[in-house]
């Protein structure tokens, strides 16, 4: 059984992790947890922590994959962070999924759990007035175990290098634009999840090979159970029932957006580094594309780009849904 195999894999990979700061004793039974892998992403961390703290995340789990920019030291000093370190290969751990699967197996049982990249910011219906505990409480009441999202790529107007991102800054101040309606959807018969592609990356980088464009379907929020496991990033889970975050009879299930603050000036250096490392999905071919394009300075912005104003806008545009949460 694939689920068992992935679990065993995660458990084996635990040997690659060394605890740097373990504050897991402080976790309350009903705490909402966040899990994240980082590599040289120090400038992003302060705002990331601030954003999710204000939404009601109580404890953060980080796996540091060999950063040398002071990020781990910063995280180790935060009161609500537990940190692990590894120098193992990102690719061999299925892009960090194995490491985080193990940490969740060990610490997240029965908790509402967010699995994120440091450039992903969850937006859901009513997120300006109702914190995450309200969402999780409602999901519990409705008997829902997992919450689906669209990964929404956000970008600045003009070339990436034009605006400098400062540590602690809200990235969407400089990258407030997004594509509103060019997403393609299909189902993945093997795991039952949706397969969503499109957005600015497909439009600009993958114009000629759309099938290679990155997946934008993500299920980052799960009422975790030891029996669960992510298959690939947070795109899909096992058991398959957890991937049923969409309605097939015509209705809309409540869903959110993961705002993706990937396209900042730091991406240019990052792309150069990753092209060297070849540690990312499909050997980082996505980064190849950014690297080439980033240097020529073409922006992702176009005449039809929308500027973010809030969750209600995303809801009206049909990028997320209130479902029957009112």
């Amino acid at each position: 059984m694939e689920r068992r195999r992935l679990q065993v894999r995660g458990v084996r990979k635990r040997r690659e992790l060394t605890a740097v700061a373990d504050r897991t004793r402080l976790i309350h039974p009903d705490a909402i947890l966040a899990f994240c892998t980082i590599r040289n992403e120090k400038p992003r961390l302060p705002y990331f922590l601030e954003y999710y703290r204000s939404l009601g995340v109580e404890h953060f789990f980080f796996v540091d994959n060999g950063s040398d920019d002071g990020g781990p030291e910063y995280l180790a000093g935060e009161p609500d962070v537990s940190l692990w370190h590894t120098d193992a290969w990102y690719r061999d751990s299925r892009f960090g999924t194995d490491w985080l699967n193990w940490l969740k197996f060990r610490y997240a049982h029965k908790h509402w759990t967010l699995t994120l990249d440091p450039d992903e910011f969850l937006v859901y219906p009513f997120c300006d007035t109702r914190p995450l505990p309200a969402l999780c409480h409602w999901l519990d009441q409705s008997g829902i175990r997992s919450f689906g999202t669209l990964l929404l790529d956000m970008y600045p107007r003009g070339p990436l290098s034009d605006l400098k991102y400062c540590e602690g800054q809200d990235p969407f101040e400089i990258a407030p634009w997004f594509d509103a309606g060019n997403y393609t959807i299909d189902t993945n018969p093997k795991y039952g999840n949706l397969w969503i592609q499109g957005g600015p990356r497909a439009r600009v980088y993958f114009e000629d090979e759309p099938e290679e464009a990155p997946s934008l379907n993500k299920i980052p929020l799960v009422r975790w159970d030891r029996k669960y496991t992510y298959v690939s990033s947070t795109h899909m889970l096992l058991p398959r029932g957890l991937n049923q975050v969409y309605d097939r009879a015509g209705g809309e299930k409540a869903s959110g957006c993961l705002l993706h603050a990937k396209f900042l000036d730091s991406l240019i250096d990052k792309a150069a580094e990753e092209v060297e490392r070849r540690q990312h999905f499909a050997r980082g071919r996505e980064y190849d594309a950014y690297y080439k394009r980033g240097q020529t300075g073409d922006g992702l912005w176009c005449n039809w780009s929308e500027r973010l104003t809030g969750w209600r806008q995303l809801e009206t545009l049909g990028l997320m849904s209130k479902g029957n949460w009112a």
Binding site: I185, V245, A249
Partner: peptide, 17 residues
């Protein structure tokens, strides 16, 4: 919204058979 949804919309929470 939960039972009928918005006609003609395909998204992360709605993909009708």
């Amino acid at each position: 919204r939960r039972t009928r949804g918005r006609p003609g919309l395909l998204m992360a929470g709605r993909f009708p058979n």
